[in-house]
């Protein structure tokens, strides 16, 4: 059965309304996107939506109790809560630098968990 879905592209803040015609996993037509990013966004959205996961990780002996982190690339939306649990169980010792890989290849997605800021050690 051929289905139609209207998506709001989130590749950039412009937010194009993209219309996708598809049957199962097969894309028939994509309309409304202003750039090629919209095309690939719509394809992925239909087949398997993926997102960057930004969250925090617990820090030991840091200036703050938490360090913000993110996945280095988009991971499947359905893996989010599982990834949150893995990250939530981890504690990293300060100091940490922005870009430090804190967890490698989370859930075999090919994405690493990296720090998104410097976290100096606690000033005693």
């Amino acid at each position: 059965m051929i289905e139609t879905k209207t998506l709001t592209c989130v590749a950039c803040p412009k937010g194009c309304e993209v219309t996708v015609e598809y049957e199962g996993d097969e894309i028939i037509e994509i309309k409304g996107n202003a750039c090629p990013q919209g095309q690939s966004y719509a394809e992925e959205e239909i087949v398997a939506p993926t997102r960057i996961l930004p969250t925090t990780i617990k820090v030991k002996n840091g200036a703050l109790a938490l360090c913000p982190v993110k996945t280095t690339k988009q991971i499947p939306l359905e893996n989010m809560f599982e990834a949150m649990e893995i990250i939530g169980n981890k504690v990293i010792e300060a100091p940490i630098s922005m870009g430090d890989v804190l967890i490698e290849n989370i859930l075999d997605t090919g994405a690493d968990i990296v720090a998104t800021r410097d976290m100096p050690a606690e000033i005693k």
Partner: peptide, 14 residues
Amino acid sequence: HHFKEELTGPEYAQ
């Protein structure tokens, strides 16, 4: 817009 890449808030600030 500014850096032509997607950053988190702390990264933008840094």
